[in-house]
């Protein structure tokens, strides 16, 4: 199955994660790319400086100021720029802290998945034989399953803390990393410079670490960008359905999930975090695509 996928989805070595074909005018234009970079940089700074920027404590409730709309609307309270939620918490502060936590979770999840996946991929690709077959069989099972099921099971057993969530996110993409690394290693091994290293008597470990590992950096970096944007979405989806980060802690997904009940009377509670999720996702995806184009010379020719 996965072999078929690689056969049909074009670029060998790169994962079967869809690469998006943008309209030519958008792909060629620098402006959207630069804009995406700027917006993302701005959001990153905002997330990092959340404690400095946030006007309120994100969890401080004020029952007298519940469900105030953003400034500019009727009944607005000038102190709450983006309005307040059902418990009278400042939405701007919650968005800043939520963005911070969402980005941090996705980052840790990516690093964890990368470490697990690259390790397993290297063991499989260099070890060959039984280790390779067994590890890749497990990776295939992982890829064939709807990951939400795994997440539900893990969270039901281990509880829903931030640490568990990082583990769940790390489990989400390890198999993709492992497959990528293994595939790259298998093709690298046939190349002349590896043969040359063998010929001058370099030991296998040295060949693996000094000669092969540096060649994996490019593809793994591209994969990590894609994983990062996917994990932002996964984390927000899990928090949205209520099994991710638990209240009162804010992430963008849980804010949308909990604000859902007030959709009819107070749509701004949901709108602000929802727009942020979309912005982050769009920007990371645009940049990830550009990065992939730059890294993969075979695509550049098209």
């Amino acid at each position: 199955m996965s072999d078929l996928a690689r056969m049909s989805v074009g670029v060998p070595g790169l994962p079967a994660v869809p690469r998006f074909v943008l309209p030519i005018w958008l792909a060629r234009a620098r402006v959207p790319l630069i804009a995406a970079g700027l917006v993302l940089a701005l959001l990153l700074v905002a997330a990092l400086c959340a404690p400095l920027l946030a006007p309120f404590d994100p969890n401080a409730q004020k029952l007298l100021a519940r469900l105030r709309p953003p400034i500019g609307f009727e009944r607005a309270d000038a102190r709450y720029w983006l309005g307040s939620d059902q418990l009278g918490r400042d939405l701007l502060s919650r968005c800043l802290y939520g963005l911070r936590l969402s980005l941090a979770l996705a980052l840790f999840g990516t690093v964890l998945g990368l470490v697990i996946g690259v390790t397993i991929g290297m063991v499989a690709g260099l070890g060959r034989g039984f280790a390779d077959a067994a590890l890749m069989a497990v990776a295939d099972v992982k890829l064939a399953l709807p990951f939400t099921l795994v997440a539900l099971l893990v969270i039901a057993i281990a509880g829903s803390g931030v640490g568990v969530l990082v583990c769940v996110l790390g489990l989400a993409y390890w198999a993709q990393f492992a497959r990528l690394v293994r595939g790259q290693l298998l093709s690298l091994r046939e190349l002349p410079f590896v043969e040359a290293a063998h010929a001058i008597g370099a030991r296998p470990v040295r060949i693996a670490l000094r000669h092969m590992l540096p060649n994996l950096v490019g593809p793994v970096a591209v994969m990590a960008t894609l994983t990062f944007s996917n994990l932002i979405l996964l984390e927000s989806a899990l928090s949205f359905i209520g099994i991710g980060v638990q209240p009162p802690t804010a992430t963008l997904g849980s804010m949308v999930g909990q604000g859902r009940d007030y959709l009819a009377s107070a749509p701004w509670v949901v709108a602000a975090p929802a727009v942020l999720i979309m912005l982050v996702s769009l920007c990371v995806m645009l940049l990830g695509d550009a990065l992939r184009d730059r890294m993969d010379t075979r695509l550049r020719a098209r």
Binding site: P18, V21, P23, L26, L233, M278
Partner: peptide, 18 residues
């Protein structure tokens, strides 16, 4: 054609619950 692709890009990038 390129507008259809752009719409597809949006459909792809916007999370389903949003």
């Amino acid at each position: 054609g390129s507008w259809v692709l752009f719409a597809a890009f949006l459909g792809y990038a916007i999370p389903n619950f949003v």
